[in-house]
Protein backbone atom coordinates (compact mmCIF):
# COMPACT_ATOMS: atom_id res chain seq x y z
CA UNK A 1 0.00 0.00 0.00
CA UNK A 2 1.41 3.41 -0.97
CA UNK A 3 1.19 6.41 1.31
CA UNK A 4 -1.24 8.11 -1.05
CA UNK A 5 -3.91 5.47 -0.37
CA UNK A 6 -3.69 5.64 3.41
CA UNK A 7 -6.44 7.36 5.34
CA UNK A 8 -5.58 11.00 6.12
CA UNK A 9 -5.69 10.34 9.86
CA UNK A 10 -3.17 7.52 9.40
CA UNK A 11 -0.84 9.79 7.48
CA UNK A 12 -1.12 12.42 10.20
CA UNK A 13 -0.55 9.79 12.87
CA UNK A 14 2.66 8.66 11.18
CA UNK A 15 3.80 12.24 10.66
CA UNK A 16 3.12 12.95 14.32
CA UNK A 17 4.63 9.78 15.72
CA UNK A 18 8.02 10.13 14.07
CA UNK A 19 8.89 13.52 15.60
CA UNK A 20 7.50 12.39 18.94
CA UNK A 21 9.76 9.33 18.92
CA UNK A 22 12.69 11.45 17.75
CA UNK A 23 12.45 13.52 20.92
CA UNK A 24 11.55 10.64 23.23
CA UNK A 25 14.17 8.10 22.19
CA UNK A 26 17.78 8.58 23.29
CA UNK A 27 20.00 10.66 21.00
CA UNK A 28 21.64 10.30 18.63
CA UNK A 29 20.52 6.74 17.79
CA UNK A 30 16.80 7.41 18.20
CA UNK A 31 16.95 10.56 16.08
CA UNK A 32 19.03 8.81 13.44
CA UNK A 33 16.46 6.03 13.06
CA UNK A 34 13.45 8.38 12.91
CA UNK A 35 15.25 10.69 10.48
CA UNK A 36 16.08 7.76 8.23
CA UNK A 37 12.47 6.58 8.29
CA UNK A 38 11.11 10.08 7.60
CA UNK A 39 13.52 10.63 4.71
CA UNK A 40 12.67 7.23 3.21
CA UNK A 41 8.98 8.13 3.49
CA UNK A 42 9.57 11.22 1.34
CA UNK A 43 10.59 8.82 -1.44
CA UNK A 44 7.43 6.75 -1.27
CA UNK A 45 5.30 6.56 -4.41
CA UNK A 46 2.47 9.03 -4.37
CA UNK A 47 4.38 11.75 -2.57
CA UNK A 48 3.93 15.15 -4.19
CA UNK A 49 0.78 14.28 -6.13
CA UNK A 50 1.03 17.47 -8.15
CA UNK A 51 4.22 16.16 -9.74
CA UNK A 52 3.23 12.55 -10.18
CA UNK A 53 3.85 11.23 -13.62
CA UNK A 54 5.80 14.21 -14.85
CA UNK A 55 9.20 12.53 -14.71
CA UNK A 56 10.62 9.61 -16.55
CA UNK A 57 10.26 7.44 -13.47
CA UNK A 58 6.89 8.23 -11.96
CA UNK A 59 6.90 7.53 -8.27
CA UNK A 60 10.59 8.16 -7.65
CA UNK A 61 11.21 11.45 -9.36
CA UNK A 62 8.44 13.26 -7.45
CA UNK A 63 9.73 11.59 -4.30
CA UNK A 64 13.18 12.97 -4.97
CA UNK A 65 11.68 16.45 -5.20
CA UNK A 66 10.04 15.97 -1.80
CA UNK A 67 13.28 14.61 -0.34
CA UNK A 68 15.21 17.58 -1.73
CA UNK A 69 12.63 19.99 -0.25
CA UNK A 70 12.96 18.35 3.15
CA UNK A 71 16.77 18.38 3.07
CA UNK A 72 16.99 21.96 1.85
CA UNK A 73 14.54 23.09 4.53
CA UNK A 74 16.50 21.32 7.24
CA UNK A 75 19.94 22.51 6.10
CA UNK A 76 19.81 26.04 7.60
CA UNK A 77 18.82 24.60 10.98
CA UNK A 78 21.94 22.42 10.98
CA UNK A 79 24.03 25.47 10.19
CA UNK A 80 22.60 27.51 13.05
CA UNK A 81 22.91 24.57 15.45
CA UNK A 82 26.56 24.17 14.53
CA UNK A 83 27.16 27.84 15.29
CA UNK A 84 25.46 27.57 18.69
CA UNK A 85 26.39 24.07 19.93
CA UNK A 86 29.14 21.50 19.92
CA UNK A 87 29.08 18.69 17.38
CA UNK A 88 27.32 16.00 19.53
CA UNK A 89 24.54 18.42 20.49
CA UNK A 90 24.21 19.60 16.91
CA UNK A 91 23.78 16.03 15.71
CA UNK A 92 21.29 15.17 18.45
CA UNK A 93 19.08 18.21 17.94
CA UNK A 94 19.62 18.35 14.18
CA UNK A 95 18.40 14.80 13.68
CA UNK A 96 15.27 15.53 15.70
CA UNK A 97 14.56 18.72 13.76
CA UNK A 98 15.16 16.93 10.47
CA UNK A 99 12.66 14.27 11.47
CA UNK A 100 10.08 16.96 12.19
CA UNK A 101 10.74 18.78 8.94
CA UNK A 102 10.79 15.67 6.77
CA UNK A 103 7.57 14.41 8.34
CA UNK A 104 5.76 17.68 7.74
CA UNK A 105 7.06 18.01 4.19
CA UNK A 106 6.11 14.39 3.47
CA UNK A 107 2.56 14.68 4.76
CA UNK A 108 2.15 18.08 3.10
CA UNK A 109 3.17 16.61 -0.26
CA UNK A 110 1.09 13.49 0.13
CA UNK A 111 -2.17 14.70 1.62
CA UNK A 112 -4.50 16.95 -0.39
CA UNK A 113 -6.26 19.25 2.10
CA UNK A 114 -9.65 18.44 0.59
CA UNK A 115 -9.17 14.78 1.43
CA UNK A 116 -8.37 15.60 5.03
CA UNK A 117 -11.46 17.80 5.29
CA UNK A 118 -13.60 15.00 3.90
CA UNK A 119 -12.11 12.64 6.47
CA UNK A 120 -12.85 15.11 9.25
CA UNK A 121 -16.47 15.56 8.15
CA UNK A 122 -16.94 11.81 7.74
CA UNK A 123 -15.51 11.24 11.22
CA UNK A 124 -18.18 13.50 12.65
CA UNK A 125 -16.11 16.59 13.30
CA UNK A 126 -18.16 19.76 13.37
CA UNK A 127 -18.32 21.70 10.12
CA UNK A 128 -16.85 24.70 11.92
CA UNK A 129 -13.66 22.83 12.85
CA UNK A 130 -13.33 21.44 9.34
CA UNK A 131 -13.92 24.89 7.90
CA UNK A 132 -11.25 26.52 10.03
CA UNK A 133 -8.73 23.99 8.79
CA UNK A 134 -9.72 24.04 5.13
CA UNK A 135 -10.17 27.80 4.92
CA UNK A 136 -6.70 28.36 6.34
CA UNK A 137 -5.19 26.12 3.67
CA UNK A 138 -7.23 27.46 0.78
CA UNK A 139 -6.54 31.04 1.82
CA UNK A 140 -2.85 30.72 0.96
CA UNK A 141 -3.17 30.65 -2.85
CA UNK A 142 -5.94 33.25 -2.76
CA UNK A 143 -3.85 35.62 -0.68
CA UNK A 144 -0.81 35.03 -2.89
CA UNK A 145 -2.83 35.89 -5.98
CA UNK A 146 -4.25 39.00 -4.36
CA UNK A 147 -0.83 40.11 -3.11
CA UNK A 148 0.50 39.79 -6.66
CA UNK A 149 -2.37 41.89 -8.00
CA UNK A 150 -1.66 44.57 -5.39
CA UNK A 151 2.04 44.55 -6.24
CA UNK A 152 1.19 44.91 -9.93
CA UNK A 153 -1.18 47.78 -9.18
CA UNK A 154 1.42 49.55 -7.03
CA UNK A 155 4.03 49.09 -9.72
CA UNK A 156 1.68 50.73 -12.22
CA UNK A 157 1.63 53.71 -9.87
CA UNK A 158 5.40 53.92 -9.82
CA UNK A 159 6.27 51.99 -6.66
CA UNK A 160 9.31 49.79 -7.10
CA UNK A 161 9.79 46.77 -4.81
CA UNK A 162 13.49 46.67 -5.73
CA UNK A 163 16.39 48.71 -4.40
CA UNK A 164 17.66 49.49 -0.91
CA UNK A 165 16.20 48.44 2.43
CA UNK A 166 14.20 51.65 2.84
CA UNK A 167 12.63 51.35 -0.57
CA UNK A 168 11.76 47.70 0.04
CA UNK A 169 10.17 48.53 3.39
CA UNK A 170 8.05 51.23 1.73
CA UNK A 171 7.00 48.71 -0.91
CA UNK A 172 6.16 46.19 1.80
CA UNK A 173 3.94 48.70 3.56
CA UNK A 174 2.21 49.50 0.29
CA UNK A 175 1.52 45.79 -0.13
CA UNK A 176 0.61 44.81 3.43
CA UNK A 177 -1.86 47.58 4.21
CA UNK A 178 -4.21 47.05 1.25
CA UNK A 179 -3.89 43.29 1.61
CA UNK A 180 -4.92 43.26 5.28
CA UNK A 181 -7.64 45.87 4.84
CA UNK A 182 -9.17 44.11 1.84
CA UNK A 183 -9.22 40.80 3.71
CA UNK A 184 -10.92 42.40 6.69
CA UNK A 185 -13.41 44.10 4.38
CA UNK A 186 -14.36 40.78 2.84
CA UNK A 187 -15.11 39.00 6.10
CA UNK A 188 -18.71 40.23 6.19
CA UNK A 189 -19.45 39.27 2.60
CA UNK A 190 -17.91 35.84 3.07
CA UNK A 191 -20.09 35.31 6.15
CA UNK A 192 -23.16 36.19 4.07
CA UNK A 193 -22.09 33.84 1.30
CA UNK A 194 -21.56 30.95 3.72
CA UNK A 195 -24.87 31.60 5.41
CA UNK A 196 -26.83 31.53 2.18
CA UNK A 197 -25.17 28.26 1.19
CA UNK A 198 -26.42 26.51 4.27
CA UNK A 199 -23.15 26.61 6.17
CA UNK A 200 -24.43 27.20 9.67
CA UNK A 201 -23.33 25.73 13.00
CA UNK A 202 -24.91 22.35 13.48
CA UNK A 203 -25.43 21.73 9.76
CA UNK A 204 -25.56 18.00 8.96
CA UNK A 205 -23.09 18.10 6.08
CA UNK A 206 -22.77 15.21 3.68
CA UNK A 207 -19.15 14.11 3.14
CA UNK A 208 -18.67 14.17 -0.64
CA UNK A 209 -15.91 11.57 -0.94
CA UNK A 210 -15.15 10.11 2.48
CA UNK A 211 -11.81 8.26 2.46
CA UNK A 212 -12.00 4.57 3.35
CA UNK A 213 -10.87 3.94 6.89
CA UNK A 214 -9.92 0.28 7.17
CA UNK A 215 -9.95 -1.49 10.53
CA UNK A 216 -6.27 -2.28 10.12
CA UNK A 217 -5.49 1.40 9.79
CA UNK A 218 -7.53 2.30 12.84
CA UNK A 219 -5.69 -0.37 14.82
CA UNK A 220 -2.40 0.88 13.39
CA UNK A 221 -3.09 4.40 14.59
CA UNK A 222 -3.81 3.16 18.09
CA UNK A 223 -0.61 1.11 18.01
CA UNK A 224 1.36 4.21 17.05
CA UNK A 225 -0.16 6.07 19.99
CA UNK A 226 0.50 3.20 22.38
CA UNK A 227 4.04 2.92 21.01
CA UNK A 228 4.73 6.56 21.75
CA UNK A 229 3.28 6.26 25.24
CA UNK A 230 5.36 3.12 25.89
CA UNK A 231 8.52 4.78 24.65
CA UNK A 232 7.87 7.76 26.89
CA UNK A 233 7.21 5.55 29.89
CA UNK A 234 10.36 3.52 29.22
CA UNK A 235 12.39 6.67 28.88
CA UNK A 236 11.03 8.21 32.07
CA UNK A 237 11.07 5.07 34.21
CA UNK A 238 14.26 3.36 33.25
CA UNK A 239 16.53 5.82 31.52
CA UNK A 240 15.73 9.05 33.32
Amino acid sequence: MTGGRLHPFTLLAIAGTLPALAWILPAPAGGAVTTAVALVLTLTPGASPGLAGTGSSPGWRPGLVVLRTAVLTAAPFWLFLLLLHDVPSTIAIGLRLTTMIASVVWVGALLPPGRLVEAMVAAGWGVTAAYLFAAALSAVPLLKARAQRIVDAQRCRGLSPRGGLGRRLRALRALALPLVLSVLHEVDERALALETRGFVPGARRTPLAPPRDATAERVGRWLLLVGCAAALAWRLAWRG
Partner: peptide, 19 residues
Protein backbone atom coordinates in the same frame (compact mmCIF):
# COMPACT_ATOMS: atom_id res chain seq x y z
CA UNK B 1 -18.26 33.91 -2.21
CA UNK B 2 -15.91 30.98 -2.49
CA UNK B 3 -16.57 28.61 0.36
CA UNK B 4 -12.92 28.20 1.30
CA UNK B 5 -13.65 24.52 1.87
CA UNK B 6 -13.38 23.27 -1.67
CA UNK B 7 -10.28 22.55 -3.67
CA UNK B 8 -11.98 21.87 -6.99
CA UNK B 9 -14.79 23.64 -8.83
CA UNK B 10 -16.96 20.52 -8.55
CA UNK B 11 -16.57 20.52 -4.77
CA UNK B 12 -17.23 24.26 -4.66
CA UNK B 13 -20.55 23.85 -6.46
CA UNK B 14 -21.35 20.85 -4.24
CA UNK B 15 -20.65 22.86 -1.09
CA UNK B 16 -24.22 24.14 -0.68
CA UNK B 17 -26.02 20.87 -1.45
CA UNK B 18 -23.65 19.02 0.89
CA UNK B 19 -24.56 21.43 3.68
Amino acid sequence: QLSGMAFTVWDEVAFGPAN
